[in-house]
Deep mutational scan, measured.
Amino acid sequence: MATGGRRGAAAAPLLVAVAALLLGAAGHLYPGEVCPGMDIRNNLTRLHELENCSVIEGHLQILLMFKTRPEDFRDLSFPKLIMITDYLLLFRVYGLESLKDLFPNLTVIRGSRLFFNYALVIFEMVHLKELGLYNLMNITRGSVRIEKNNELCYLATIDWSRILDSVEDNYIVLNKDDNEECGDICPGTAKGKTNCPATVINGQFVERCWTHSHCQKVCPTICKSHGCTAEGLCCHSECLGNCSQPDDPTKCVACRNFYLDGRCVETCPPPYYHFQDWRCVNFSFCQDLHHKCKNSRRQGCHQYVIHNNKCIPECPSGYTMNSSNLLCTPCLGPCPKVCHLLEGEKTIDSVTSAQELRGCTVINGSLIINIRGGNNLAAELEANLGLIEEISGYLKIRRSYALVSLSFFRKLRLIRGETLEIGNYSFYALDNQNLRQLWDWSKHNLTITQGKLFFHYNPKLCLSEIHKMEEVSGTKGRQERNDIALKTNGDQASCENELLKFSYIRTSFDKI
């Protein structure tokens, strides 16, 4: 039985969820670079991206490699990797027998973001014989899940209580170790020597080791999670996991709180800001991140802002960003909400898709409305799209047979046209069989910064309504002859009103 693990408890099935942008060198404390989270699957090609990484700022997932063999891993080693800020997950990587050479110096898994409450997941690794993470000293947050690894031993010899604050939620089941077939031998045991430290858990006094050649490092209890030197002297209180010299914040392997210019500090002093819960960055760093993602459509890219001495992905609820200094300031009234469309555009074809934009005031991208039916549609669209004030790209209304009016965009005031449909149009209306009105132009103002209007096959939309939009939106004169079809717009509506004058002759039985 794995020490510190839980057996036999019912657990939810383990679901495996399925960018080499360097964020800056980590400095003297770390020998390499800070790398983003990685999802490495199918083959070993991307694994080489770990070569210079000291910190993975995010998670590391290595999974679904069915053609790899043990010899493929023999020359692979990433000794610079010290810390993973989120979680480490391995799933069905064939041929991998140990992690001792792959990650010989991995010391800390912070667990800032977890995989279903777990910071370390080893699942269905069919050839893994031992973990071998002999320098792993601290899992700051989260638990361990090690399950269905039929060859995995050296679990009962690990004292997880020396690595985690609590072992109650560890789930370590259905491994070879369960069948008591392992016969784990710690260093020196074969020669009758006791080389590794022994600890007591559940009444068992057991030597602690990761492999037959690597003991588990056990520091004096007084050192807590700070770690200790090879001689057993406690590291500085700002260290986490390990250090090369005692009581020196510049000799830590990793930091308990924050890293700044080669030393570990309790908090980031001005003019620095907390970033990702582990390091200090200056304003320029946060500003660069903001600008890199301002026009990016890459998933996970955030326009970072500053709030409460932190550089964070977005302002919290009730705050909006001051564009001059990136500071989050309290909103006066309802907060603006910028919604970034991942692929640059979004099609609204149902109430469900409209709900995804609920509360958005600025759309960074283009909207395509293609709704053919739905219950209580006008009210639903207004509830979900009615706060949109600005669209950076274009607005396209296409084959939306259920629409009679666009009044559900009740606050839309600006279409920038930074991206144009077919390279020309910022407003595009095609084949809307029941569209009769755009907006009530006596109450609604709309500016279209650039781009043209396109109207074709809107049989109940009168040309007068379209011409009014040209005047109000500032697009009059931009359109070419064929942009607004004269014969297919309003051709099934009563669009022309003329005053009919009647004269009559009164007659009676005795007068003409």
Rank of each mutant, 00 (worst) to 15 (best):
Q204C: 11
H28V: 08
D261A: 05
S213D: 15
Q303M: 14
I139L: 06
M65W: 02
M38N: 06
F283L: 07
S98C: 06
L136Y: 00
N117G: 07
G241T: 07
P220V: 05
S317Q: 13
T68L: 10
K80T: 12
L289V: 12
S143R: 11
T45F: 07
T45W: 15
R113C: 07
P316D: 10
H214V: 13
I306L: 10
E151L: 09
L81S: 00
C293V: 07
S213K: 11
C196P: 05
P36I: 12
Y304H: 05
N195F: 08
C280L: 01
R110W: 04
G142S: 02
W160M: 06
E130P: 01
L99E: 00
C301Q: 04
I139W: 00
V206T: 13
I158G: 02
G203Q: 07
H28T: 04
L44Y: 07
T320Y: 06
V305Y: 04
C328M: 02
V121L: 04
I158R: 04
G192L: 15
D159C: 03
E238N: 15
R74D: 06
F275E: 08
I56C: 01
F275W: 08
K251W: 03
N308W: 12
N309Y: 06
N309R: 10
G262V: 04
R279L: 04
K217V: 12
I185A: 13
Y319H: 11
P269H: 14
N202A: 10
T229I: 10
P271E: 09
H307K: 06
N308C: 04
E49D: 13
N149S: 08
C196K: 11
E181L: 15
Y94I: 15
K67C: 09
P187H: 01
S213C: 11
H290C: 14
I84T: 00
N282V: 03
R263F: 11
N308E: 04
H302D: 12
H214D: 03
N170P: 06
C311A: 05
E147P: 01
D101S: 07
G241K: 04
N242C: 10
F205R: 02
N242V: 12
L44F: 12
S166I: 14
D101L: 14
L64R: 07
F78V: 06
P70C: 07
I109E: 00
G32L: 07
F283H: 03
V34A: 12
L99T: 08
I201M: 06
Y273M: 15
P334S: 08
P70Q: 06
Q303T: 03
C243W: 01
K251A: 00
S77I: 12
N325G: 15
V200Y: 13
R297S: 11
T68Y: 06
M65R: 03
L128E: 01
G32A: 15
G300Q: 08
I139K: 00
V218L: 10
I62H: 01
D75Q: 10
C315E: 01
C315H: 01
I82N: 03
P197A: 14
W278V: 05
N138Y: 12
T140Y: 09
N117A: 09
G333V: 03
N42P: 05
E147G: 15
I122E: 00
Y87Q: 00
E231F: 15
F283K: 15
E57P: 00
T85H: 02
C234T: 02
M65G: 05
T320L: 06
L90W: 05
V55Q: 01
T189W: 06
K217C: 12
L164P: 01
G232W: 12
S112R: 15
E33K: 04
D159H: 03
Q216N: 10
L136N: 00
N282E: 15
L233C: 02
N135Q: 12
A156I: 05
R46Y: 06
V144P: 02
E168S: 15
L327E: 11
L332Y: 02
C280D: 00
N242M: 07
Y30P: 03
T194I: 14
C328I: 02
G188S: 06
G58C: 01
P334T: 14
K294T: 14
S112P: 00
S77W: 07
N195M: 12
H127Y: 04
T250H: 09
Y171R: 00
T189F: 14
G111V: 00
Q204P: 08
L164M: 08
D72S: 02
E231G: 15
S324A: 11
N42K: 08
C239M: 00
E49F: 12
C335G: 02
R145P: 01
E207R: 07
D184E: 07
K176A: 05
I306F: 14
K193V: 04
I82C: 04
G142I: 01
N150G: 12
V206Y: 02
K148R: 15
A119G: 10
V173C: 15
F91H: 04
P269S: 04
R141T: 02
D261W: 04
E180P: 07
H307Q: 12
K67G: 12
C223A: 01
C235T: 00
K217A: 10
T107E: 04
E57D: 09
C311R: 01
R298F: 11
Q299V: 06
K129G: 05
S161G: 08
C335P: 12
L47S: 15
Q276K: 09
L88G: 00
H59L: 01
C209H: 02
A119M: 00
I84K: 00
L89M: 14
S296Q: 11
V108A: 14
V218G: 05
M321T: 08
D277I: 05
M125R: 00
T68K: 13
N42G: 14
V200L: 04
Q216L: 09
L327S: 03
R110C: 10
L96T: 03
G95L: 02
E180K: 06
G37D: 08
M125S: 14
S54Q: 11
C223T: 01
Y171T: 04
D86L: 00
N170E: 09
E49K: 15
H307Y: 07
V34L: 10
R69S: 05
F103G: 00
H236L: 01
C53Q: 00
L44I: 13
G58F: 00
W210N: 06
G333Y: 14
C196D: 00
T320V: 11
Y319V: 03
C209S: 02
N202L: 05
E231P: 14
V144L: 07
G262R: 11
G142T: 00
V55Y: 09
L233R: 05
V55A: 09
F73L: 09
K80V: 04
H214S: 10
R69T: 05
R279T: 12
G203L: 07
Q299M: 10
S213M: 15
N202W: 07
G262C: 05
I201E: 12
Y259D: 11
H236V: 01
N295L: 10
G111L: 01
G183T: 06
V265E: 13
W160Y: 11
D277Y: 08
N242R: 13
N170L: 10
D86W: 01
V253P: 02
R69A: 12
C280F: 01
P313D: 07
F258V: 09
L114S: 03
D72N: 14
R256E: 08
K67A: 06
N179R: 12
E130L: 06
C153A: 02
F285C: 03
R74F: 04
I185T: 05
L164S: 10
D159Q: 09
L289E: 13
L120G: 00
D277M: 14
V253M: 09
R298V: 04
C215R: 07
N175M: 03
P220N: 06
C209I: 00
R256C: 02
R110N: 04
D248I: 02
I82L: 07
L63F: 06
H214F: 08
H214I: 11
I185Y: 09
N43G: 08
I84A: 00
Q299R: 09
